[in-house]
């Protein structure tokens, strides 16, 4: 009939996959059995991505934990992820720190490097530049501890690779909003 021929419905996360963004979600949950399984199951069940996930109790008396999730998707998909998380009964609050803006994100990594001679010197020099600490040393190896943004850690690992990278353990991202306010 005489329907106006304006553009089709603008939205469908399934159709427009071009504008994928990475967001950090901070999820405050009751620290009860199964809560992590609920959150992770939601992501797998609905086909969302998890790029990094950390979880730890943050308020012992109140039994609250914070789960920090780095996920990627279109802005619409990420909005939907937030709402789906809020539907879980033990979830108190979901904050999209990327939307809030200016959040501080940190990750801790332990990086084991093996080598002799010139390589050891080079490893220590780089560690110094990245403010990494030596937390274990043998005549053949170092373990460095490093905190920072994920991309800084990525960079450090890439630099260590040709020198003699043996193993890496990373915590995943923990994040918090700047300023005085509680979110």
């Amino acid at each position: 009939m005489n329907a106006p021929t304006s553009p089709p419905s603008p939205y469908s996360s399934a159709i427009g996959k071009s504008n994928v963004e990475s967001h950090t979600l901070s999820v405050l949950v009751d620290n009860e059995p199964g809560v992590l399984a609920r959150v992770v199951g939601l992501f797998s069940g609905r086909g969302y991505n998890i790029e990094s996930l950390t979880v730890a109790e943050v308020a012992h008396a109140e039994h609250l934990s914070r789960i920090t999730i780095v996920t990627s998707g279109t802005p619409e998909a990420i909005e939907q992820i937030g709402h789906q998380l809020e539907r879980l009964v033990p979830v108190h609050k979901v904050i999209d720190l990327t939307l809030v803006g200016g959040a501080i994100e940190r990750e801790l990594a332990m990086v084991k490097v093996q080598g002799k001679g010139e390589n050891r010197v080079e490893a220590l020099r780089l560690a110094d530049a990245f403010r990494a600490r030596v937390i274990d040393a043998t005549t053949q190896s170092f373990v460095f501890e490093l905190t920072g943004r994920s991309d800084k850690i990525d960079q450090f690992i890439e630099l260590m690779r040709p020198i003699g990278l043996v193993d890496v353990s990373r915590t995943g991202v923990a994040a918090i909003a700047r300023g005085a306010a509680a979110p």
Binding site: A3, P4, T5, S6, P7, P8, S9, S12, A14, I15
Partner: peptide, 8 residues
Amino acid sequence: RLDAFAPG
């Protein structure tokens, strides 16, 4: 069809 749903 979603992209033809109530277009106007």
